[in-house]
Design a protein around this nucleic acid. Structure first.
Lengths: 190, 190
DNA sequence: TTCATTTTGTGATTTTTATCACAGGTCACT
DNA sequence: AGTGACCTGTGATAAAAATCACAAAATGAA
């Protein structure tokens, strides 16, 4: 059995699982190695899994008339999926791609649902994970209502500096809802 | 026992509960009637509950240097809370206020956590509810990355017309991340 | 290293949006 | 009906951001 320490510890950080439940959960996953540029999900496919990023990062983006709009960057120790596609079994409107050489653990949708039924502990883990994801998503959504573009940049710089260190400015621009050139200028003037 | 039909049906729409679990869950709630303007949560308080809106609507807002910024409007059949404050037991950075005469059902944090431990079915309901909330939140967050202000208005008009019918333009402006005057002008020119 | 590709910086210009100021309208309450 | 509080529309102006065009720099692969 392929028990990964990092994954196990991260799961424990989200919810305390008994050794049995932890084993069960980890046994259901499968590691995947992605080269930079490889896709986990392509627009139009039905999303069948949830992924945990062990190393590297993933980019979630939408295609808007040929222009790519990045809605999420998922780094180490984060979970990512297209929840709408996963839940409703409908084609995904977005794609998920590796931004670096990336290692993920794949949690298959069907297996996960089975585990939820089998183990209340694992269901509890799922709930806690979702609470965590929702909390972060809400906070991020508020950036756009509370801050101006320059303030969004400042906030990101202060609270999520890894984004700037690892993601190109061109890709960050759409994530911040501003033009690439504007972001370049904002960065110059502190 | 105060079993409300609307609430029961809405819960069933989220997750199939056995009659016993449903009874348990509903027995843990308490109805609250709010006049327009009354608060469920005031900035600085620790959020202790999750609320289900039966009638009316709630407004979630932040105070930014004396200016109110609305981040959410919760209408009939929706659940709302301040998840960060609820989870981390820290003072809330936002307030939640009734925008009309509003009836809510209050789910106390402690009772809910107890129920999660007691009943796998109820935990499953919690997970499903969170998935649903996260899905909606992600979609809303994408408005700001994918659409221009005018397009955000159009999207809201098409997909969430009740917002325009029941929330004042002044309050919607910050929710759409634009100035009140700009929204007024966008509305004129279709 | 070299070459091609991608990324970034920058100026000029246009477009969009915010801000300020104020008038008229609506609504609830007495 | 009158009063005050809030909401909406609109013009003038300033500020911010988008867009276009292109050069410089960085990156990566052969």
């Amino acid at each position: 059995m392929n028990q990964d320490r990092v994954l196990a510890n991260q799961i424990r950080a989200i919810a305390n699982l008994s050794p049995e439940a932890l084993t069960l959960l980890i046994a259901s996953t499968q590691p995947k190695l992605l080269k930079k540029g490889q896709f986990l999900l392509i627009e139009g496919q039905v999303c069948q899994a949830l992924w945990y990023v062990e190393k590297g990062y993933l980019r979630t983006f939408y295609d808007r008339d040929g222009r790519e709009i990045n809605t999420r960057f998922s780094f180490e120790n984060n979970f990512v999926t297209d929840l709408r596609s996963l839940r409703t079994a409908t084609p995904s409107a977005c794609s998920i791609q590796a931004g670096e050489t990336t290692t993920v653990w794949e949690f298959d949708r069907g297996k996960l649902l089975d585990l939820y039924r089998q183990s209340a502990e694992i269901e509890s883990f799922g709930r806690n994970l979702l609470e965590h994801m929702l909390m972060e998503q809400e906070e991020h959504a508020n950036w756009f209502k509370v801050y101006s573009p320059a303030e969004r940049y400042q906030f990101m710089l202060r609270h999520h500096p890894h984004l700037l260190q690892r993601v190109s400015l061109s890709q960050l621009a759409s994530y911040l809802g501003i033009a690439r050139e504007t972001l370049s200028r904002i960065r110059k003037n502190p």
